[in-house]
Write a protein that binds this DNA or RNA. Structure first.
Length: 98
DNA sequence: CTAATGACATTTG
DNA sequence: ACAAATGCCATTA
């Protein structure tokens, strides 16, 4: 319960034009449950409230998304994040650290 | 309470 | 470098 809320709160804190990884979120929560983080975002009852599309995998790939990763790619590009071959360009540069 | 699952990550083949 | 297997944590059935 609390865990998911924490995940969503952190996800909400991600500034526009930046991205983060499930691992980073888990680390911010002082845990290694990147799996659970993915699960939390998957449920994501605060769909428009939480920009889950800014959360990507550790290698910069978008990972899986509920409404098609293609749409998320477009959203990220709108926010200024360039996507290259299903991966974030300048990933380390755009990566948001908590 | 036990078992299965997933929007992951890391190590092997 | 790519594909498959294994490990992880919290949630859900």
């Amino acid at each position: 319960m609390n865990f998911n809320e924490q995940v969503w709160e952190l996800t909400k804190k991600i500034p526009k034009g930046k991205v983060t990884t499930y691992r980073e979120i888990a680390r911010a929560l002082h845990t290694k449950a990147y799996r659970a983080v993915g699960n939390a975002l998957n449920k994501n009852p605060y769909a428009p409230n939480v920009p889950c599309h800014r959360v990507v995998k550790s290698d910069g790939s978008l990972g899986g998304f509920a409404s098609g990763c293609e749409h998320k790619i477009k959203l990220l590009q709108e926010e200024g994040v360039e996507i290259k071959d299903n991966k974030v360009a300048d990933f380390e540069n755009k990566l948001y650290k908590f």
